[in-house]
Design a protein around this nucleic acid. Structure first.
Length: 483
RNA sequence: GGCCUCAUAGUAUAAUGGUUAGUACAACGGGUUUUCAUCCCGUCAAUGUGGGUUCAAUUCCCGCUGAGGUCACCA
C-alpha cells in the first residue's frame, strides 16, 4: 500500500547530543516516510530557552547525516513549510492561539506560580490528582496580555483512539486539563507547538516515545478545538539501560551516537541494530541494509514493551557488517571507511600496503578502531620482548639452545625464498615443520611472535607475506641475536 | 496516590487454542596447521503468579505481583 501523502518528522529539542536511547524516534519515522515515498522533516523544538544548548543542533544534524537519515525539509535544506526552528515561528503560534481565544477555548491566566503550587500541594495532601481546571479563575479573560500565560479551556470527555503500537486506547475526562499553550515568556509549550507545527507541515504520522501516551487525550482535545484531522499516532517504547529497569538516558551513561562513530562503529551496523531493537519483520533475518529496512519496516510489528540496550550485540553486528562490506563490496569499499583508525606509525605507509594489511586482518575486527592496536607491527618494528617469547605456553618448554636452533633453521629456510608469495611461504613453513619435527604450535608461535610481538596476528604465511621479505628476515635475525 | 502501558532463557525476539516452545547475541565445550578472530558443530537456558473458559491455554478473560510512564509556564 503506497501512499505519496505520508509525512513524518523527527522533532528533537536542542539540549545536547542524540544518544542511542532516543535516536530510534528518528529512524522509524524516516523508514516510514521513505517506504511511502513521503517526506521526512527535521524540526528543531527550541522553545525552552533555559535548556537550550549552543551547538546541539549541529550535533543532531551530524548524527542524522552519519546514519544516512537525510531529511527533506528542515534546517540547511529548507522547505515550503519553514521556518523549521520553533523559536522562529512565534507569530504562527500566536495566530493560532488567537483563534482559540476568540472561540473562548483558551484564556489568559494571571494566576501566580506560587498559587498554583499551593493548589498542587493541596491535591497531593488529599491524595487526589491535580487538575488545574478545578482551580480555574471564576471570571475568564479571553484577551491576550503580554507576559501572561495562556491556557487551553478543556472540555473533558471520553476519548477513543488507536495507537499504532499500543492498539486501541481510551481515556476519560480525568486526564484532560487546562494545559498551558503559551508561556509567560511568549514561547509556546511543546504541547501546543507540536500540534500547530504538525498541522502546518502536514505531518501524517506522529511517532514519538511512549511518554507522550498519557497526554494524548489533551492533544486530542486540541485537534478537536481546531477541527484538525488526527494524524496516525505511534508510541515508541523506551530503550532500557543495560542494567536496572530505567529507560536509557544520559544519566545511565548513554553514549552519543557519534561517539560510536569515533569508536569505529559503522553507520550501517548502528542503523541495523537500532532498527531491530524492538522491531522485527517476522523472519529470522538479522542483517538488513538501509534499503531492506525501508521496504520491510512495518509499524505494527514494533514491540510494545521496552527493549534493553545490548552493546555486545551491536559490536557483534558491527563485525558482521565489516566482513559483509569487505566480502560483497570489496576491500576498497571497507578501506575508505578506515581513515583515521590506523595506528600513528601507518601515517607514511602507502594505501596499497594498508589495503594488504586490511585484507588479512579485517575478519578479526569488531570495530574499526581495533586497527590501531592490531596492526601496529605492520608499520614499525616491534620492541623485542624476550620475556613474552620465552613465557609463551608453547615455547616455555624449549631451552635457549633449542630456540636458537629453530630460529636459525627458520631463517635459513625462509631466506631461500626469492619469490616471497604466501604460497611459497606456506610450502616452506611445511617443510620446516617436517625438517625440525616440531609441532605447528611451537614453530609457528616462535616465528609469529618474533616478527610481531603481538598477542595475536593473522595466519603466519599471510603475515609474513604482507610484512615483506626484508622486514620479516631482519626481524627474525634481530630476535635470533637476542636469544 | 489517580490514570495509563508492559510481562517468552542473562539479553533481543519468533510461534501457535494442540510444537520436542524456533532463532540470534552472551556463556560453556569442540573442530579448522600457532595465537586472536572468522567460520562450522554442540551444550546450557524461557512462557512472572493465582484463578477462570476449554477436551486442550504460553496464547483468550479476571485478580495479583513486578517493572515502566504520566500527573511542569520540560520536551
Amino acid at each position: 500500500m503506497k501512499t505519496d501523502n505520508c509525512i513524518t518528522r523527527f522533532a528533537p529539542s536542542p539540549t545536547g547530543y542524540i544518544h542511542i536511547g532516543n535516536v530510534r524516534s528518528a529512524i522509524y519515522p524516516y523508514l516510514v516516510a521513505r517506504q511511502n515515498n513521503g517526506k521526512f522533516i527535521l524540526r528543531i523544538e527550541d522553545t525552552d530557552r533555559e535548556r537550550y544548548v549552543e551547538g546541539a543542533t549541529d550535533l543532531i544534524e551530524d548524527t542524522l547525516k552519519w546514519l544516512g537519515l537525510e531529511w527533506d525539509e528542515g534546517p540547511e535544506v529548507g522547505g515550503d513549510n519553514g521556518p523549521y526552528f520553533q523559536s522562529e515561528r512565534l507569530e504562527i503560534y500566536h495566530e493560532w492561539v488567537k483563534k482559540l481565544l476568540d472561540a473562548h477555548r483558551a484564556y489568559s491566566d494571571p494566576t501566580p506560580a506560587e498559587k498554583i503550587d499551593e493548589y498542587r500541594k493541596e491535591c497531593s495532601e488529599k491524595k487526589v490528582p491535580f487538575l488545574y481546571r478545578n482551580f480555574r479563575p471564576e471570571k475568564l479573560d479571553f484577551e491576550f496580555h503580554e507576559g501572561v500565560p495562556i491556557r487551553f479551556l478543556a472540555e473533558p470527555k471520553d476519548y477513543e483512539w488507536t495507537d499504532a503500537v499500543m492498539g486501541p486506547m481510551k481515556a476519560g475526562p480525568e486526564v484532560q486539563d487546562d494545559i498551558i499553550l503559551i508561556k509567560k515568556d511568549g514561547y509556546p509549550t511543546y504541547n501546543f507547538a507540536h500540534i500547530v507545527d504538525d498541522a502546518e507541515m502536514g505531518v501524517t504520522h506522529v511517532m514519538r516515545g511512549v511518554e507522550y501516551l498519557s497526554s494524548t487525550p489533551n492533544y486530542l482535545g486540541l485537534y478537536d478545538a481546531f477541527g484538525l484531522e488526527r494524524p496516525v499516532l505511534v508510541s515508541l517504547p523506551h530503550i532500557l539501560a543495560p542494567t536496572g529497569n530505567k529507560k536509557l538516558g544520559k544519566r545511565d551513561g548513554a553514549k552519543s551516537v557519534t561517539e560510536y562513530r569515533d569508536d569505529g562503529v559503522l553507520p550501517e551496523a548502528m542503523l541495523n541494530y537500532l532498527a531491530c531493537l524492538g522491531w522485527n519483520d517476522g523472519t529470522e533475518q538479522e542483517i538488513y541494509t538501509k534499503d531492506e529496512l525501508v521496504s520491510r519496516f512495518s509499524r505494527d510489528r514494533i514491540q510494545s514493551s521496552g527493549a534493553r540496550y545490548d552493546e555486545t550485540k551491536l559490536l557483534w553486528m558491527n563485525g558482521q557488517w565489516i566482513r559483509r562490506i569487505f566480502d560483497t563490496e570489496g576491500a576498497s569499499a571497507l578501506y575508505v571507511k578506515t581513515e583515521g583508525f590506523w595506528p600513528e606509525a601507518a601515517a607514511g605507509s602507502s594505501e596499497e600496503y594498508k589495503l594488504k594489511v586490511l585484507s588479512i586482518i579485517y575478519d578479526r575486527l569488531k570495530t574499526l578502531s581495533d586497527l590501531r592496536a592490531m596492526t601496529e607491527y605492520f608499520f614499525k618494528d616491534p620492541e623485542i620482548d624476550m620475556e613474552m617469547l620465552k613465557s609463551n605456553k608453547f615455547l616455555k618448554k624449549l631451552s635457549e639452545a633449542e630456540l636458537e636452533d629453530l630460529m636459525k633453521k627458520s631463517i635459513s629456510r625462509l631466506g631461500e625464498i626469492t619469490d616471497w608469495t604466501a604460497e611459497n611461504l606456506n610450502a616452506a613453513l611445511n617443510e620446516l615443520l617436517a625438517e625440525t619435527g616440531q609441532k605447528p604450535a611451537v614453530l609457528f608461535s616462535l616465528i609469529r611472535i618474533a616478527v610481531s610481538f603481538a598477542p595475536f596476528s593473522p595466519a603466519l604465511d599471510l603475515t609474513l607475506n604482507v610484512l615483506g621479505r626484508d622486514t620479516a628476515l631482519s626481524r627474525l635475525n634481530a630476535v635470533a641475536r637476542a636469544i
